[in-house]
Design a binder for these strands. Sequence first.
DNA 1: TTGCCTCGAGATCA
DNA 2: CTCGAGGCAA
Length: 713
Amino acid sequence: MQPGVVGPCLYSINGMLCPPIFSVGAAPSVAALLESGLTTMTAKQTPPQEATKLRAEINDHNYRYYVLDAPVISDAQFDKLFRKLQELEAQHPELITPDSPTQRIGAKPLAGFEEIKHTVPMLSLANAFDEDELADFDRRVHDRLKRDIEAPITYSCEPKLDGLAVSLRYEAGKLVSAATRGDGYAGEDITQNIRTIKSIPLHLRDKFPPVLEVRGEVFISKKGFAELNARAEKTGEKVFVNPRNAAAGSLRQLDPQITASRPLTMFCYGVGVVEGAEFKSHSESLQALKRWGLRVNTAAAVVKGLKQCATYYQKMASQRAGLDYDIDGVVFKVDDLALQKTLGTVSRAPRWAVAYKFPAEEENTQIEAVDFQVGRTGALTPVARLKPVFVGGATVSNATLHNMDEIARKDVRVGDTVVVRRAGDVIPMVVSVIKEKRPKQTQEITLPSECPICGSEVMHVPGEAVARCMGGLTCSAQRKESIKHFAARRAMDIEGLGDKLVEQLVDHDLIHDAADLYTLKADQLAGLERMAEKSADNVIAALEKSKTTTLPRFIYALGIREVGETIARTLAHAFGRLDKLMAADEEALLAVNDVGPIVAEYVLHFFQQASNRKVIERLQHAGVHWPAIEVKAAEDLPLAGKTVVLTGTFTHFSREDAKAHLLALGAKVSGSVSKKTDFVIAGESAGSKLTKAQNLGVTVVDEATLQKWVAAL
DNA sequence: TTGCCTCGAGATCA
DNA sequence: CTCGAGGCAA
């Protein structure tokens, strides 16, 4: 096979040749294309000229097909052009360019995905679930902008696609990288897979900017999904349950060849970074994206004021079923970019946008049983076992009922027919009971007086929502859960020690607590389910490896109530050594940032327990160790004695977080700028305080600097 | 919470 | 071939 020429026909998906997009130089006009008879080869051309011309034509047809939604040739004609280019390139491999439309699947399967940091974070959106909440949003926008509520704001509206958010980066017009959203700050490098999506141009057209990071949603159309599953069914492969998961799975393929066979497509909805271009409004930026060859949802619109937003929502709601893609709501963005800037961003979502969600899909089903699960802290959680029902794109068979109050409020009984939905389209929830359908014989749900696992007493403190098993570590459920927590990735990170294995180990009485893990021998493990020699050795090796850890991880792994990762880290840094933390009294604990009386009480109580101290001692004795953390005395803190003023809004911190971090760094945080101010930290859309700082000659630093300080701590 | 992909390795059958 | 574990996304 020729280098760079991949496979047989890559584009014959669904028996139809679908076009890719991009453009070099000026694209021929429709008239010119039609005149040329669409078969090129009019006059004599050199092969390089012909290749260039073919590519331009193909890319242009792609653009017309995907972006303008107005193809001027048939699929068969496109097919012909495409094959012609393939043949030409096969005869003259030296003519192949990386961004030739034939080169979408160039690469070999990846070993794994690399990380890509987003230049501008990919935030999530605030949600509104009814018209009141939408009105609240509009009011907040007016308030923040100090606008009269009667003066309508111009909003850009678009359907909210149910797919996966991705970010594409173009440099000098070329697609150079693509990433998933990830945690919003960094995602996975899925460039290879994105390149196979024919509606995404490998090269921008028109007067594209030198650098562009564009955000959008990758998805599979309803039609594409149906065809994909029909094919899968025919070939006996497994079918996907919904388009969203099919799209997500397709992008996570290591082999781009497989991704190419999935009918993925994309709508772009925003600009992350752009250099060399300026826009006044969001809608203008969408127009530009379209000009540059990127596909933008044609249902996008610009409206004035709340009322028209509501109308747009109604319109989309009524069109929803007829659309060829799944949407779960409508997004409204303040159109004017200057206003967006003024509004700024709160911790994880911009203040200038809102997602008005359609009501979640609901289904009826029956409650077959209610079990009580015992958690790590002994908390008894009632879980409804449901007759499996397909709702919101997944089969739901369990739903937490949270606690007894919740059960009483909804008056849920075993045997009841209930309405189920996936809250936020994720977590299953029992919405209500259909009383009319209640059978004569229903069973009321009562809190067991004894722990269903260990038989210990169950205590329900009046006023508290949760009931707890008082068995402590004599309860095998609590032991299992705390050992699982100990081994978890974010805790001791013991690879291969999953839930199933922990359960077997506890059930076989091989371990009773976390410290027992380190006494395990390979031959004890071997013989358990799915545990032969090799696996057993791996687990032993993983245990050995986990002995070298860090203090924050270890504190977190202990599973002290209310001590999550963040507080564990704070405590580790505040005390530096475990023995210091164990010896700390209430006063010392309360002196730590973010530690209040409740957390202090739990920490004290935990270390008072002889059993806990014993486990810690045995863990250390087994060789679990970590480097001490240097605790900086107040005067040694990097910002000791400095007065700092915050202004503007920050992307990575809320105001409170930023302040807390600065205090931890030893700084004094003041509200107003004076000559005594050492630094002003200016975020987005900083106002008068920034001006004043500049006038007084006070040092101004940006958010990135603050992040650096925090990271260094 | 569910669904998807990937990997390693155990289980099963020829 | 099947399962458990791990990782990711919504």
